[in-house]
Design a protein around this nucleic acid. Structure first.
Lengths: 354, 354
DNA sequence: ACTTGGCACTCTCGTGCGGGGAGTGCCAAG
DNA sequence: CTTGGCACTCCCCGCACGAGAGTGCCAAGT
């Protein structure tokens, strides 16, 4: 980017031209020529003057022309400047808050998963692009209750209730069979000692305890603690990198993705989940709306797309990220508002839930 | 279909020509002309003769030409005849059973859901089309264990263990609060009386019991039974119409779906799940491989696609359906074998699981 | 009666050509 | 510094043309 320059050094008039150009291009999808720009910019400049300005903008990498006798379209750098100028002004927008509020109200008290799905499909429905919401990831998982159930053949079903609401279950394999009362005893032990404490903390403590009692005569206790430890070990690794995507198919409408190869690569990325999740988690640590334009995301499949994200949470603690994925040529102003408002409403909804 | 005729009345030679034509078309994707057909059919007929035969086949609706000077391609009716002739002969095929066996072995003992996912992605990977497997739906759900956990605010978490393995949980709302021991008592009651019996049976019985004790002074018992009833009512409605789809994106490669509108409609159908699930369930009652060609499925979005399905189950009882979705122009012979073998292996894997 | 070679006909597809339209770059004048 | 003018470039569209492929039909052969 040798020719890149400090955007602040651009004359006001030049920035105005860029702004209008981006707006117009977003509206129409056609390259913008000097004539229409001079008319619509409201600056009272002749097309020739505008041409000169456009020449400058092109030299500095904000716009480009698809071929010599077409108009100009914004580059990623151009979009970036445009978007940054949008973010400076407080977006006070007539929003369809009510629509979402209503939906959220319906889901109140439902599984968090349902809530997330509603929000994701709201995002996609309202923007006509793809909506995405990560599942809320609590920083700490508080153990509420544990239960062991014998399945025979040295298999034990562990049921774990965390955070008042969520039930997780898993089968663990042991090296011997346990009687009903053994299992009850183990569950009682854990429930009594550890209920209300953080799960990963418990795992560590159980581990320590196992070390300590290793030479103990009480082999039984040993095995039980081992078993409980296994249960919590599983818990730690599960449930990662998941999000709810909605309206992916909306993206098929955009000519940016008319290339089937690209489309395929994109959908495969969606299915794999990992890449997109990583991208989203990166947004958890900034607060407020964040925007990746085109290649800024660093993932090749998203080259022609932009992502607008915002973290959501309750009581200031971020528990997830939501966002909208669409073509680089999207109505940023509207999308930013929607994402922003939605993240706040979702935070509130989660709060009221428990 | 006025011109449709009994396929059995077609002369052997004519059927042979159709068979070869379909084979060739499946291989190459290009309309087949009389010259190449005469060469490859091995019947020692001149192109002119083949032309006459093709004329007959076209009149009877088995083949058609995209335009006057292209070769011929099979119609749905033509595919149907082709496929039926395939199904008559036992498909004894060198199959990649081992590959799948290995994968299934890895998943042995894992969640059924994981197993299903493996199979689905095997189907898709091996055929390079889309694989689909419905979740196993047991005819009866045997209650193993129930537990009630107070969440406060008149909400109770119900944990239900069915069929030795599966854990279901749900929050029910009650009209008053219950003490810990109330809940324990309720759980004990249900576990003691109903463990090992079918869930929907239990629901009915609880309902009856509720009617009977309505005038009873024992209000407590009343409420408990009511609560348990609620729990089982939920259980009944959950978990329907679900399947695991894999490799949908493979379908994007086929020019049959190069029309973005079609592609979009198809993927939306996949997401909705209902339509496809209904189609699949219809296959549960026939045994052996079943094939829908093009519009035979009755769903418009599948017009250019075919579906090859087979039910799977254990001990003769069908618990689900699996299949492959691909373009009408697919290698039926191979796909039929794969689907057939896979359904049997999955059945066996489920059996060995518990 | 069936098969075959011949032949005219039709249709698609790729290519090359030309004109209209849009927009630019540059220059010289204001 | 702005503006009008003008030549230039490039895309896009319609058109025609020829090559290629395959058919339908007919008349002759077995």
């Amino acid at each position: 980017m040798s020719r890149q320059s400090d955007p602040n050094q651009l004359p006001e008039r030049t920035r105005r031209i860029l702004h209008v150009l981006v707006e117009q291009y977003i509206r129409g999808g056609q390259p913008i020529g000097s004539r229409s720009l001079s008319r619509v910019s409201g600056l009272g400049l002749s097309p020739a003057t505008v041409r000169n300005i456009m020449y400058d903008l092109e030299e500095q990498g904000y716009i480009q022309s698809p071929h010599t006798s077409a108009g100009r379209i914004p580059t990623e750098q151009g979009y970036r400047l445009f978007v940054d100028s949008l973010l400076k002004m407080q977006p006070v927008h007539r929003m369809p808050e009510d629509e979402l509020r209503k939906e959220l109200a319906l889901d109140a008290g439902a599984e968090p998963k349902n809530l997330i799905e509603s929000v994701s499909s709201f995002l996609s429905g309202f923007t006509r692009m793809a909506g995405v919401v990560t599942l809320p990831q609590r920083g700490q998982n508080t153990l509420r209750y544990i239960e062991f159930l014998d399945l025979g053949q040295q298999r034990i079903l562990v049921i774990l209730v965390v955070n008042d609401h969520e039930v997780q279950n898993q089968v663990i394999h042991t090296d011997r069979d346990y009687s009903r009362s053994d299992l009850e005893q183990a569950a009682n032990y854990v429930n009594h000692h550890f209920a209300g404490r953080d799960v990963s903390e418990i795992r560590q403590e159980l581990h320590r305890e196992l070390q300590a009692t290793r030479r103990d005569v009480n082999r039984m206790m040993d095995a039980l603690v081992d078993m409980a430890g296994k249960a919590f070990a599983h818990e730690a690794e599960s449930d990662k990198s998941d999000f709810v995507l909605a309206g992916e198919t909306n993206l098929m409408n955009f000519e940016e993705l008319s290339d089937v190869e690209k489309l395929k690569a994109l959908f495969e990325t969606f299915n794999r989940k990992r890449d997109l999740y990583d991208l989203l988690s990166r947004c958890a640590h900034t607060d407020g709306v964040q925007i990746f334009i085109g290649r800024e995301s660093g993932h090749q499949v998203l080259d022609d797309l932009s992502i607008v994200t915002a973290p959501y949470g309750r009581d200031g603690e971020v528990v997830g990220v939501l966002g909208v994925i669409g073509p680089t040529r999207m109505e940023y102003e509207r999308v930013i508002s929607v994402v922003d408002v939605t993240s706040k409403l979702l935070g509130a909804a989660l709060k009221s839930q428990d």
